[in-house]
């Protein structure tokens, strides 16, 4: 019964997650950019824009300029999240690639820094009056969701060990449509339930900042309006405009 519920839950969550993100990307891609609006100084070449994006996405360059505390907590949070995701790939890959095996200990402790980062962001949200002012209940709940996922995961690593072999069998079973029983442990059920919830709300929430940032017209545009003519997709070409 439990296995069936979680199996179905993860199928639904997966479809919403992947389908929803794909839909958002399609939506952002098809929405026209009427005028080129890079925030300058901006790179004058495509390669330059790739470099700007790389610094922005991986190192949060603009955030660094803005506020060192947010930057520290955000980096702790996101860098840890990457390591955690890499560590969790072992549940979906058989055999486990060597690189992912090597990353395991990093991923393990990243759980701690992940929670630390989320706590830091939560503290800012609660105690800095300006940030409190702009926070809706969903902004707090989002951080609580991450904390729930992080802490339940840490419990399984550092407090009561879970049957990880069973968990892996469950997920490989899901992927091959050959369902295997899900080990019954409260932390695991909580952990997986919250992860499924995270996947479901992802495309409908501010979490779309992850794919969205790549489409940001102030960041991804080449600063070359004098060198290359840009035809606005929303304005008729010049020869179809009535002259006054």
């Amino acid at each position: 019964m439990l296995t069936t519920v979680y199996a179905l839950l993860f199928y639904v969550a997966f479809v919403i997650f992947v389908g929803g993100i794909a839909y958002r990307i399609w939506e952002y891609k098809k929405t026209p950019v009427p005028l080129k609006i890079p925030t300058t100084p901006a790179p004058t070449t495509r390669v330059g824009v790739l470099w700007r994006m790389f610094k922005e996405v991986l190192f949060f360059e603009s955030l660094w300029k803005s506020n060192k505390w947010i930057w520290i907590f955000a980096q702790l949070f996101h860098a840890s999240l990457w390591l955690i995701i890499i560590r969790h790939l072992r549940y979906f890959l058989q055999p486990v690639p060597e690189l992912i095996a090597l990353a395991q200990p990093f991923g393990k402790y990243a759980g701690l820094t992940f929670v630390l980062g989320a706590l830091g962001l939560l503290a800012r949200r609660m105690f800095v009056a300006r940030v409190r002012y702009i926070s809706a209940p969903s902004d707090y709940l989002m951080l609580l969701l991450f904390l729930g996922i992080g802490i339940s995961g840490l419990m399984m690593t550092f407090v009561t060990r879970t049957d990880v072999v069973g968990v892996k069998a469950f997920f490989l079973g899901l992927m091959t449509f050959n369902w295997q029983p899900l080990p019954n442990s409260p932390q695991l059920l909580l952990h997986l339930g919250l992860v499924a919830l995270w996947m479901i709300i992802f495309p409908f929430s501010k979490l779309v900042h992850a794919p969205g940032v790549f489409f940001s017209p102030t960041r991804n545009a080449v600063d070359d309006p004098r060198e290359r003519f840009y035809q606005s997709p929303v304005l008729p070409p010049i020869d179809q405009v009535p002259q006054e």
């Binding site: 929405t31 026209p32 609006i37 940030v131 501010k206 969205g212």
Partner: peptide
């Protein structure tokens, strides 16, 4: 439907407070 900045910027703000 016509202006990407409008749709995208209203969607993706995470309320981090960097601009406040």
């Amino acid at each position: 439907g016509k202006v990407r900045s409008f749709r995208l910027f209203l969607d993706i703000c995470v309320k981090c407070g960097a601009c406040t």
